[in-house]
Amino acid sequence: MARVLVVDDEALIAMMLCDLLTEYGHETVGPAHSESQALELVASTPIDAAILDVTLGDHDCFAVAEALGERGIPFAFATGHGAHAMPDAFRERMTVSKPFDFDVVRKLVNELVTSQNQA
């Protein structure tokens, strides 16, 4: 079981990700609906992995991604945009597109948690 942070400004989408993570046997952190909520959780809470919505209201999630990267916490993006919209620094990161393919989400979470254990 891992502690997975969920960041999405749409509460309903965050709720679905939390439901799926619970179903896959993980504990969810958050969900955070804004950049500031997410940064606060990253700074204050033990986290093993994270799934980030790229667009957070007027912000994007890249400051949160950097904070996670600095701490060596594996993360993936959830996005309704294509991978081409990603900045170069994050283009190699795993991405799951909306609406979700639940099998893809399950594999993605497994990979995140496995890479965290290896680190």
Partner: peptide, 9 residues
């Protein structure tokens, strides 16, 4: 796509 994800949820 967001709307579809919301409906999915």
């Amino acid at each position: 796509k967001n709307l579809l994800a919301i409906m999915q949820s």
